[in-house]
Amino acid sequence: MTAVQAAVRGRAARGRGADRGVSFLLLPALIPVLIFSVGPLLYGIYLSFTDARGGRNAVVSFVGLKNFGEVLTDGDFWSSFKIGLIWAVSVTVLQFAAALGLALLLNSDLRLRGLARALAMAPWAMPPIVIGLMWRLVYHPNAGILNATLRDAHVIGHNVDWLNNFGTALPAIIVVGVWTGMPQTTVVLLAGLQGVASELHEAAAVDGAGVWRRFWSITLPQLRPVIIAITSLDFVWNINQFAMVYALTQGGPGGRTRLPMLFAYEEAFRYGFFGYAAALGVAITIVVLVVLGLYLWRQMRENA
C-alpha cells in the first residue's frame, strides 16, 4: 500500500464518518418532517385507493382506481376546479402586477421608506381566518365600510351584498386574495430589485434610455428568475387556499366560490367520504404539478 493509497483510503473513511455524523445531526430535523409531512402524505395517497367512509369502526377496503374514475366524471368537482383556476390565475396575475408596482415604489427614494415598507407587510402578519373575518365586515351589506363609502360617493344607490350576490362573490374574494398575498410577493420582488446592478441603469441612462425603456430592457429581464419563482409559488399557494375563503363565504352563494380545496373538505368532513376526498386531493396535486411543470418548462426554455 502506497502512502498515496493510504491517504486516499483514510480520507474516504473520514468522509464516510463525517457523513454519518451529518445524518445523525439531521435526524432531529428529519423526524418532524417524516411524521408531519411525509407520513400524512403517504396516508392520504393510500386512502385515495380505498372506500374509507365516516363511521364508527367502519371497515375500509381497497377499491383500486374506482375513486379516480368517479373524480373524472364528477361534474360538480370540475366546475369547482374551474372556479379554482379562475381564482388562482387572476389572484396570481393581479397580485404580481400590484406587488411589482408597490416594490418599485418602495425601492425608490421615498421619505419614510422604512415605515412604508413595514406597513406593506401588515397583511402578512394576519392569520387567514382573521383576514376573512375582517373582510367580511368590510363587505357587510348594511354595516360595511365599502357600501357606506360607495353610497357617500353616489356610486351605488342601495346596499350591495357583495359576498352573497352570484355575480360579485368571486370578484370580491379575489380582491381579498390579492390583498392577502401582496406582502410576500412584494418582499421577494423588492429583494430582486435591489439585486439589479445600478451600473446597468446608469449606463442605459447615459445612452439616453428613458424610464420606461430602462424598466423594459433592464429591470424586467434582470428580475426574470425572481418573477418565475414567485409567480409559481403564488399559484400553488392560491389554488390551495382554504381558510380565508372558508371564513368569507364557505363556498357560497350556490357554490360560486367553492374552490377545489373547499369541495374536498366538504366531501371529507361534511359528508364523510374520506377515500373520495383523498382522491380529490391527489387529483388536485397532479393537475397543479402538470400546470406548473408546463409553465416552468416554457419559461426555462425561453430563458435558455
Binding site: 352570484f166 357560497g252 352563494p253 350556490g254 359528508y271
Partner: peptide
C-alpha cells in the same frame, strides 16, 4: 340519508337560482 349533501350541493343553489328568477 344524504339529505345534507342534497341540500348543500343540489337544492340550495337550485332554489337560489329559481328565486332569483334565473
Amino acid at each position: 340519508d344524504g339529505y345534507d349533501e342534497f341540500k348543500t350541493k343540489v337544492a340550495t343553489p337550485a332554489l337560489q337560482s329559481y328565486f332569483a328568477n334565473k
